[in-house]
Simulated assay, not measured.
Amino acid sequence: MPTSLTLKNIPDILYERLKASAEKNRRSLNSEAIVCLESVLLPTQISPGERLARARQLRASLFPGKFHLQDIEAFKQQGRP
């Protein structure tokens, strides 16, 4: 069962950002606040397999041959004793 919540003493800058986000997304202030709370408090669980598939897809979208392992290792060691 949904519950009501009253927020007090919201900083002006936070209120303005919430209001602007609500307008941009064509939502009420209440709906936008719920979406914001859900995104922080109820993060989506991603399975390890799905995370790995996303990483492989991202890697495949990079320019092939542009980055070589030895170059990456050399950049990582630059400036280190």
Results as ranks from 00 to 15, higher is better:
P2W: 02
P11G: 05
P2D: 03
L14I: 12
P48V: 12
E73R: 15
L69G: 07
P2H: 12
S4K: 15
S21L: 11
K66W: 09
N30H: 05
N9W: 00
Q77E: 13
A33D: 02
S47R: 14
A53R: 05
A55F: 02
R56C: 11
R17I: 06
Q70S: 15
E73S: 07
F67C: 06
R54K: 01
A60C: 00
D71E: 14
M1P: 10
S4Q: 15
Q70R: 14
K76S: 01
S31R: 11
Q57Y: 02
E32L: 03
I72E: 02
D12G: 10
E50G: 01
L7F: 04
K19P: 00
I10R: 09
S31K: 12
A74V: 13
N30Y: 00
L37W: 03
D71Q: 12
G79I: 03
L58Y: 13
Q77I: 06
L58Q: 14
T3C: 01
Q57M: 12
Q77L: 08
S4I: 13
N25A: 09
P81L: 01
R51F: 06
I13D: 14
P2Q: 11
I10T: 12
K24D: 08
R54F: 05
R54T: 06
S61I: 05
K66C: 06
Q45S: 10
A74K: 15
R17C: 06
Q57N: 02
E23A: 11
P43G: 10
E50I: 08
C36S: 12
T6I: 13
K24S: 10
L42Y: 04
F63A: 10
A33R: 04
Y15T: 04
E38I: 04
S39R: 08
I34P: 02
R56M: 07
L69Q: 08
R56G: 12
N30T: 04
L69E: 01
D12K: 11
R59T: 04
E38A: 12
I13V: 14
A33F: 03
R54N: 02
S47D: 11
I72M: 13
T3I: 05
E32D: 04
I46V: 14
D12A: 15
T6S: 08
Q78D: 11
K24I: 06
Y15V: 06
E23W: 05
G65M: 10
L52N: 07
S21M: 03
S61M: 00
F75T: 14
H68T: 10
I13E: 12
E16D: 09
A55K: 05
P64I: 13
L42H: 03
Q70F: 02
A53K: 08
R59Y: 05
S28R: 09
F75V: 07
K24T: 15
S4E: 12
S31D: 13
H68G: 01
E38L: 15
E38K: 13
Q57T: 14
R51C: 07
S61N: 01
K8M: 00
L37I: 13
S61V: 00
F75P: 08
S47Q: 14
E73K: 15
T6P: 00
I72Y: 14
D12R: 05
E38S: 09
P48E: 11
A22H: 02
L29M: 05
I46Q: 08
I46G: 03
L41Y: 03
H68W: 00
N9Y: 01
L14G: 02
S31Q: 15
R26A: 08
R27W: 02
E23Q: 08
